[in-house]
Design a protein around this nucleic acid. Structure first.
Length: 221
DNA sequence: ACATTAAGTGATT
DNA sequence: AATCACTTAATGT
């Protein structure tokens, strides 16, 4: 690789988005072994069943993480934002397991890919790396627990609002461009249910609806 | 103008 | 809340 060229660029990215990885030698290792990847919006980064060979450090854009079960039904899990990494990849590559999840670029994405063989080596060598891995592991676990009980205990309308807010946040906008059908797929619900709930939200003045677009109007938590 | 795709609605289970 | 069977509305060709 033309690593001499991207080296300073990677160091700069790390400083900006991963200040907690402050150890200089670690930064240098990431810069020498890591590679910059770019994905266009909508591109599938990792699909179910594929082997994970790099661990991503997200720099720009957001990544949608979802789970797909055996009959091909999909369920949205969470968004990954810059400064975050995919926890599933830790375990997946450490254990050489196939990916259980699918990740898709929500918008244009830039990330640093780290070959998996360095991951556990760095765990013992660099304190800040270990912290980073454990911290993001913990964060993701919490996130998952939230998702689980939102499915178990929340009603569809709350899940919908939640979903819309996360999606808007992930894209840094109040206008979401998507169809009711896609939302339904993500939430594992029927299209009609989504349409009806959205209508309700519109009547409550919380969203404005258009073809292929939903505007979020309020924020109050 | 016509076909296609997204969204809205009521009835049924 | 899912599914069906339409209807209505927006968009593309």
């Amino acid at each position: 690789m033309a690593n001499s060229v991207v080296y300073p660029e990677i160091i700069e990215m790390l400083r900006k988005h991963y200040p907690q990885l402050a150890e200089r030698p670690l930064q240098e290792e990431i810069a020498t072994h890591g590679e910059i990847y770019r994905f266009k919006a909508g591109k599938t980064i990792m699909d179910v069943g594929s082997y994970v060979k790099i661990m991503p450090l997200l720099i720009n854009g957001s990544i949608k993480v979802s789970r797909e079960n055996d009959d091909g039904r999909e369920l949205f899990l969470y968004y990954l934002r810059p400064g975050e990494s995919c926890t599933m990849s830790f375990t997946c590559c450490l254990m050489h397991k196939k990916s259980e999840i699918r990740t898709v670029a929500e918008d244009d994405v830039t990330l640093i890919g780290i070959p998996t063989r360095y991951m556990d080596e760095w765990m013992t060598r660099y304190q800040s790396w270990k912290n980073f891995v454990l911290t993001s592991y913990d964060q993701r676990l919490m996130e998952l627990i939230n998702t689980i009980d939102s499915i178990a205990f929340q009603h569809m309308d709350d899940r919908l609002v939640d979903y819309l807010q996360k999606k808007a946040q992930a894209q840094g906008t109040h206008t979401i461009e998507t169809t009711h059908q896609e939302i339904a797929l993500d939430l594992n619900a029927s299209r009609e249910a989504v349409s009806r709930l959205l209508k309700q939200l519109e009547r409550q003045g919380r969203v404005a609806l258009g073809r292929n677009r939903i505007d979020l109007l309020v924020k109050g938590k």
